[in-house]
Design a protein around this nucleic acid. Sequence first.
DNA 1: CTGAAAGCGCTTACAG
DNA 2: CTGAAAGCGCTTACAG
Lengths: 328, 328
Amino acid sequence: MGFYMVSRKDVAELAEVSPTSVSYYINDTGYVGAKARQRIQEAIDTLGYNPNQIARSLKIKDSRQFVFFCNEIRNPFYSQLVHQATKAALKEDYVTLFSPVVDDDKYIRKVCGYQISGVFASNNRIGVDAINTMAKQNIPVVILRDVKWPDLSPKVTQIKVDYSYIMDEIVVHLREQGCNEMHYISSSSSPKILDEKTKAFFKAYNKEDVQVSFGIADTSEAFEKIVSSYSSDNCPDAFVCTNDAVAFGVLKAITTIGLRVPEDVMVVGFDNAYIAKYSVPSITSVDIESEKMGKIAIDLLIRKLHGEEVDDYVVTPHLIVRQSSIRE
Amino acid sequence: MGFYMVSRKDVAELAEVSPTSVSYYINDTGYVGAKARQRIQEAIDTLGYNPNQIARSLKIKDSRQFVFFCNEIRNPFYSQLVHQATKAALKEDYVTLFSPVVDDDKYIRKVCGYQISGVFASNNRIGVDAINTMAKQNIPVVILRDVKWPDLSPKVTQIKVDYSYIMDEIVVHLREQGCNEMHYISSSSSPKILDEKTKAFFKAYNKEDVQVSFGIADTSEAFEKIVSSYSSDNCPDAFVCTNDAVAFGVLKAITTIGLRVPEDVMVVGFDNAYIAKYSVPSITSVDIESEKMGKIAIDLLIRKLHGEEVDDYVVTPHLIVRQSSIRE
DNA sequence: CTGAAAGCGCTTACAG
DNA sequence: CTGAAAGCGCTTACAG
């Protein structure tokens, strides 16, 4: 870079004390006399001194950086989570590194080279091996994940969502509203790898002929699936969707083919994003408390960092009933 | 942390070469014999060696980390931008630190202590002084900002959006659709601090009695503003909104009071978020190419890092006309 | 072709 | 009360 960075030594010289005293003063970690304190502070101010965190990290072997592996930042649920987590980390004097996940492990190993304080991962593309590798190095790891990993290191703390509970609630609610044929739209890309959410729906719905659509990314796809579902024998009278963006797209597709929500068919989403609230009609959704979850993740990480044994955390979601699932 | 981290020295011992050669091998920055190379690679594999980036950063005075200051990550425009920028940075072997902005400078100074490679800021709460401080330290800085700062350091590169152009286009389009009374909904919190977007609308609309609502955060507020605008003399026949989330809320509010879009009143948003596309009716919006902008930001930062003189970058937005502003 | 040595800017026992 | 000194894990001129 070629520019001169003022260091602790410069401060020490100007204040006429030793570099050690400067460290003691800054970190409040050793005795520094009143006169010395004052001279040091003056020197810091006049020089505009800024401690080099990298040097500090190297010495104390901790960068005070948390890494968030999270591909779906464009999903409101995750952007909310990351936002809140970053703020919570800041309060404890940690900084957050945000990172999407690249398929190979190389990048993850590289990031770990930053002597990071902890890792939060909410991603399907980050494998159990990578997670375990980090845990083995005693890096605190917290994951947000539906699917269970049998061979996950016990050192890893998992945040789980109680999908059984909420899917029961959804199915009961829809039945009360007169729905019999529910159609589930999953984010899984294939019927072979079912996420816990989808499985929980199966269990709650408990029907042989349950209809599931997989991996719907945008509305045009949703549209086709929905049209085709109406040409089949079991016309759905409710769509339960893996998240609000999908529910939103489904709503649009339904409207486009001339049906009405909730009169002809009901729609339920997940995550309680603002689109669910402000959509016309507003969409019944599930609040998983993404704001709280960001704070929880940081809290768990810091407790692990302090050597505490931390239990897995289970989130109990709430159903927010709105226009899209009320028969008047 | 209390765990043993395998270092370059361990690799050197196992491979029976000097630590220097290990560095040369890893960075491909000095000659290493064929036999030595092989032994080093084997040692790396068996030990699971991971170079300490912090130590490297300290020595080369560059952490290969870009910092993104950006409060509005929950806004789809910014989450898209951050997502794309992170991916682009990764390709060039840089990592991104994501950070909301705290009001005081302390945090910014702290972050700068990480010997960061560059800073991207798209935030109203980060002041010109903080920006200039970073620029003075020769940290490459790129900002995305509407408002002009007269005393901004010339070292800072600015990404600007050509609002004059697009506001003209919007006003012309709405006039063609028969609109005369347009009402602008700004994100500015007060009429005293007008952003460039609002000013550009004023200029394009060019009317004495232009109506503006300020700082609408959610729909209930939007609702009140809209109701009150209908009890006034100049009933708007179009709402131009500072972003799609606001447009979405306005749409909801309009529907709630029994009016119809686009028949009774037209709505235009900004940012071309997916809600604009999938909303019922779909919302006319302005595409500012948030995907491209992430890449551009990283590109500018890297070029600045290489010492290039970089001009300000002007983005020309496109109007995407949808149902909310077409009279049939 | 290879390695000893200085140094990046800190922290922190330890000695006085 | 204060400071000299070792060391964190690297890079890189320089010497052989």
